[in-house]
Simulated scan of single mutants.
Amino acid sequence: MIQRRTLLAASVCSLAAPAVLAQPTAALPTIAKTVRILQGFPPGGSLDSVTRPLAEALRGRYAPTVITENRSGAGGRIAMDAVKAAEPDGSLLVIAPASLMVIYPHVYKRLSYDPFKDFTSVSTACTFQFGFSVGPAVPAEVRTIQQFAQWCKANPSRASFGSPGEGTMAHFAGVMVARAAGMDLQHVPYRGGAPAIQDVVGGQIAASINVLAEPLPFAREGRIRVLATTGSTRTPFLPDVPTMREMGFPDVDIQEYFAVWAPAKTPQPIVSALAEHIRAAVNTKELQDTFAARAFLPSAVTPRELDAMVRTDFDKWAPIVKSTGFSIDS
Rank of each mutant, 00 (worst) to 15 (best):
F130I: 03
G165M: 03
P43I: 03
Q23K: 12
Q255C: 11
R5L: 11
D118H: 12
T235E: 15
S327E: 13
P105D: 12
T34K: 15
R61G: 12
V310Q: 06
L92G: 07
R294V: 01
A293L: 11
P267R: 12
S330K: 10
Q3S: 14
E214L: 15
A180V: 01
S123T: 05
D114C: 10
P24M: 09
L297D: 12
A228C: 13
A22F: 00
F258A: 14
S323V: 02
A308R: 14
V301N: 14
R245F: 03
A280R: 15
G60I: 00
P189Y: 04
E305K: 06
T230S: 09
P115G: 07
M183W: 07
F218Y: 15
K265R: 14
R234S: 06
A85G: 01
P217I: 02
V83R: 09
V50D: 11
T65P: 00
E305P: 02
A318W: 03
Q129D: 15
D240L: 04
Y257P: 00
I328P: 04
K153F: 00
G75I: 02
S157V: 09
G73M: 11
R279Q: 10
V102E: 15
K84H: 07
A281V: 04
A149L: 01
G248M: 09
D48N: 14
Q39R: 12
V134Q: 08
T243Y: 01
F128R: 02
A207K: 06
Q129N: 11
A273C: 08
E286K: 05
L93R: 07
M80G: 00
F314S: 08
S330G: 01
I278K: 09
L274M: 14
R4V: 10
D253V: 11
T235L: 08
V271G: 02
P164N: 05
G90Q: 11
F249W: 11
I270H: 00
P236F: 08
S46Q: 10
V83F: 05
R279I: 03
D307Y: 03
Y108N: 09
W151E: 02
P53N: 04
Y108D: 14
I328W: 09
A32R: 13
Q198P: 00
F41Q: 06
L306R: 05
D118G: 06
S160Q: 14
A63T: 09
F314H: 15
P24Q: 12
L216N: 01
V226P: 06
G192T: 03
Y257V: 05
S157H: 08
S72D: 13
F218S: 13
D199A: 05
P215R: 06
R225H: 06
I197V: 14
I209W: 01
T324P: 04
A137I: 00
I205E: 00
L185W: 03
I78D: 13
R36L: 07
P319Q: 03
M244Y: 08
V282R: 08
L185E: 02
Q3L: 11
A32E: 13
G192Q: 06
L227H: 01
D89K: 07
V211Y: 11
P250C: 09
I37H: 02
A295F: 02
V252A: 08
T144M: 04
D329S: 13
T25R: 10
A32S: 14
G44I: 06
G248N: 09
E214A: 12
V321H: 03
T230Y: 08
A194H: 02
S157D: 15
